[in-house]
Amino acid sequence: MTLVEQSTDFQFSLWQGENFRPVNQFYRTQKHKGSASGDDKVFIIQQESVIVGAVRLVPYSGYYWLRGLYIKNALQGKRLGSQLLDCVAAQISLPIYCFPYPHLDHFYSQAHYQHVDENLLPDNIATLFERYNRKGQGVLVMATNLAVS
């Protein structure tokens, strides 16, 4: 793994492992149904070599879709999620889209994500957003690193 940032007790890095097995094991402990695979970029937080936080970015042509931001329950409320998004922002300059639940609006806004008009979404993200809405997920659509027109 390439070390990106280190705080007193936590190391933030882009996952460089041979496979995503340890990351996916962490996701399962958090009851996350998805898993990292293929060309996903995964950023992690480790404490004493144990994964305690992760977020994955699914690549598309010219942008990413942020999925599965999880912090170990016992460590929530310590700004680790915000620091993980800062780590991502330091390494990714392409637009990043996400579908947060409404109660996470402030969290993502503080990380410089902004609401996006669903009529202005790239086709793939628009299709995914429509699918989430059909399932009654009640999610927002936000993004960061958007070009200013």
Rank of each mutant, 00 (worst) to 15 (best):
G38M: 00
I96A: 05
D40P: 06
R67P: 05
S82P: 02
S61T: 11
Y101G: 02
Y63W: 05
D40A: 04
L84H: 08
S109Q: 15
A143F: 01
F99W: 03
G136T: 03
P122L: 01
T8W: 02
I96C: 04
Y97N: 04
D117F: 05
T127V: 12
G136K: 03
Q16F: 01
N133Q: 15
I125R: 01
R79A: 11
R131I: 09
L80P: 01
Q47F: 05
V23W: 03
K41D: 11
Q110S: 08
N24A: 05
K72R: 11
C87H: 04
L85H: 12
V50P: 02
K41I: 06
S82C: 05
D9Q: 13
G81A: 03
T127M: 10
E5T: 12
E5D: 13
G62V: 06
F107P: 02
K33I: 07
R56W: 04
S7M: 06
K31T: 10
T8K: 10
R131G: 13
R21T: 12
D9F: 11
R28S: 10
R28Q: 15
A90V: 10
I45F: 12
L128M: 12
I92P: 06
P122V: 01
V42G: 03
Q16Y: 01
W15Y: 15
N24H: 02
K31M: 07
K41L: 14
V139T: 13
